[in-house]
Design a protein around this nucleic acid. Sequence first.
DNA 1: CTGTATCCTTAGGGATACTG
DNA 2: CAGTATCCCTAAGGATACAG
Lengths: 147, 147
Amino acid sequence: MKRTTRRSDCPINFALQTFGDGWSLLVIRDLMFTDRRTYTDFLRADEGIATNVLADRLKQLRALGLIRRRGRGRGATYALTEKGLDLLPAMLELVSWSARHDRHTAAPPDFVARIRRDREAVATELRTHLRRRHGLDSRSSRPGTVG
Amino acid sequence: MKRTTRRSDCPINFALQTFGDGWSLLVIRDLMFTDRRTYTDFLRADEGIATNVLADRLKQLRALGLIRRRGRGRGATYALTEKGLDLLPAMLELVSWSARHDRHTAAPPDFVARIRRDREAVATELRTHLRRRHGLDSRSSRPGTVG
DNA sequence: CTGTATCCTTAGGGATACTG
DNA sequence: CAGTATCCCTAAGGATACAG
């Protein structure tokens, strides 16, 4: 896929050109559904992303405004921006779809069931939670400990 | 991305390995939101997919059970399967996200507004409509005319 | 019109060594 | 630990000609 030139103004195409590769959404996933926040955290994920690829995606996603970095060098952490967090509903739908169509999926059945039963509530609740954890909430004075 | 070997059992990863390339979702989009149903229809889409790539994706998507083909050779048409149609909620969320974050988006503002305001109803309504159009509804005896 | 086939170029990305 | 840099190779995919 050519990522340099915009292929069309279709919203689906925009999404694809923004994160339509094999790796970007995995970083988003890590930030959204796990406690992984650092470079090596991401490297440790099951899919086994290569160091150069990870560095490249982190750079891209930052440039696109989906994530942001706190600090530099040792101890640097990544967090979702509002724009990145806005992908939550889409991510939940993807999880739901995969859980339905992949019999080997590792998605927690009760979580999937909740998404299906009470999608709106789950999204709202998770969103609030993530806003706090990623320092997007005015009420949280500091990024806080990851627990 | 290595599409041959499964990288992990994560549902997001499953989605990526199923249609996480730059072109597959555009075919799904065409079937879902436009009247494009034939090989040349897809070729005419704005993004300008190459013939070999299109043929490859059609093959893949059929093998994965997301779409199916009616007829052969001249006049062959493609349609969504249940599995493909199940992507509708995710697609709507992607449209919504892109419309919010891409100022050049071609998504109809009133459509986007409706998705945001009444997501559930839009999905249900569109789903019913698409089931008929793609011959997935028992009530429709024949695929029917497109128009 | 619906594809295949071929050619050829480039981007993606694995492995690994290296730097601040 | 958080990246860069390099090497090298393969797969993705444009262009185009061809086939059923």
